[in-house]
Nucleic acid binder design. Structure first.
Lengths: 287, 287
DNA sequence: TTAATAAAGTTGTCCAAGACAAATAGTTGA
DNA sequence: TCAACTATTTGTCTTGGACAACTTTATTAA
């Protein structure tokens, strides 16, 4: 259930006590068995919470109402590219067609624009489509794999220039999403920065050591919206203390956008567009 | 601690009660704070358990003795390629050199041989080197990223032939290791099979649906040694029941090698070499 | 001596309810 | 309009008991 919903065991228990939901059946040993509709409702609630809703307010609502609440989320942003075509290919399992359309789009717009104008909005659209029940988990997985291949191939095609800044890219142990890291790496590679990609889930002590031995100028962390809210600021403060002041610390992803107060010595990467400006600023400052 | 050691919260608690280890300090709120040496010992124990040791027997030993126990693990297999060179490059952070040596080796031996003779033994060697404290977590991460890039690029270079069998590749929700899936995909791609790579952590219901809509002939699952032992057989039986009998079900990875009794209708992929034979057999049978 | 069976020991996961710190919302006063 | 204070909400940690499933050892039969 933790994996399926993104909610911790303790949270599920305390919700049972407080809100009488979820209300799982019990098997012959008295252990909880969650009906599929409760799992779906929990997933919806989790996603709405990531958008700022509070559990106590929405947990009593029916699935239909929750769906409606989420429906109006990403509608306002209609990108320049028609995302509907992509979504249709995803939900109709046209793997080769989807692959070539993505490749074509990338070739046409260039890597940076492809990420900014197509992949980022498409990720949001896919998330929404999953939420409204339009596409399934495995369809999302397949799409992710495809994008990952595309990005890794593009990055490999650019390859080392040895220019500054040297950016260490990773996420903390609780954060397993890596697609954001790849997008950042691709964009930075185009800018001519040298990336040290550690992949997701690097322990803090290792980040500090890696930054030292690889002479990183910037340590960039990614936080998805499923990263525990309370932990983001805490982890960043701790890491800031452990890193030499000379090294910049950047925090990106939807999880870091929720930060209320800025943290001393930590820069928030609001968007990939802004990240380009930040690289420019770093270069000016270090010149 | 769960992430850092791979041991569940409950296991850590019950060990405290039964074996008086770990014995974490407490902060001002009475919450557990684990000294670094206890974390290391726990990691060692976890790894030794994956090799068949039982916790009660080894938990009382000192770190030195545990290290010695693990040291004699993979020594017998000295591959044809000199792994020492790779290990040295990893531990001395020579990223570009490591990258090009891997590429060269791949070009020289061919993709399949590269995986069988270099990557597989190297993965084991890296794991052992981590265990003996020779390389750090972040160095292992960097190596993983590199291999992943290499494999994904190689797979992309082969690309679709539309030949059978159609193999759906994924792992179950608790299993996050994906490098084994990539190696399998690469080897199968060379054989001309069509892969549907869903990445790791696909819920069982989604695997069934995906197998249907993509007309998969074979569903191949990967289990690493950190997958809960008791769950492997259980999950496979359940999935076997949910899949049509016409679809083959293959289980690979170190986690599935621990299966004592074979499961009706499930084939164990003992090694990548054997997988090639299995593909051949499938083709003969389906002709 | 071997093989099968039973008993004893080992091990991980689940259960329940309590406590509390931190975050959020609501209220009041300047 | 903003800041400070209070009340409420919320998630995570705590403890120890229970037990099913697995392993090992002992016992019995062939």
């Amino acid at each position: 259930m933790e994996r399926d919903t993104g909610l911790s065991k303790d949270t599920l228990r305390v919700w049972e006590r407080r809100y009488a939901f979820p209300n799982p059946a019990r098997d012959q040993h008295g252990e909880r068995v969650y009906p599929i509709e409760q799992v779906e409702k929990l997933r919806l609630i989790k996603r709405l919470m990531d958008c700022g809703h509070r559990p106590g307010k929405i947990i009593g609502q029916s699935i239909e109402i929750l769906r409606a609440l989420g429906g109006g989320l990403g509608k306002e942003s209609t990108g320049p590219v028609d995302l509907e075509i992509f979504l249709n290919l995803i939900s109709s399992h046209q793997l080769p067609e989807l692959r070539s359309l993505l490749s074509q789009t990338m070739a046409r717009s260039g890597l940076q624009n492809f990420i900014l104008k197509t992949i980022v909005p498409l990720n949001v659209a896919v998330g929404d489509a999953w939420m409204s029940g339009r596409i399934a988990v495995f369809e999302e997985h397949l799409y992710s794999e495809l994008v990952q291949n595309l990005l890794r191939n593009a990055i490999a095609a650019i390859q080392p220039q040895g220019r500054t800044p040297r950016v260490l890219l990773t996420s903390l142990p609780q954060e397993q999403h890596s697609i954001g890291l790849l997008m950042a790496e691709a964009i930075l590679a185009v800018e001519g920065a040298s990336c040290i990609p550690l992949g997701p889930q690097t322990p803090m002590a290792d980040i500090v050591t890696a930054a030292r031995v690889h002479h990183a100028d910037i340590v960039a962390l990614s936080f998805s919206s499923s990263y525990p809210e309370t932990k983001v600021a805490e982890s960043l403060k701790q890491l800031r203390l452990a890193l030499p002041v000379s090294k910049h610390l950047w925090a990106g992803g939807n999880g870091s956008a929720r930060l209320r107060k800025p943290i001393e010595g930590v820069q928030t990467v609001v968007s990939f567009e802004k990240m380009l400006d930040m690289v420019k600023l770093w270069r000016e400052a270090s010149a």
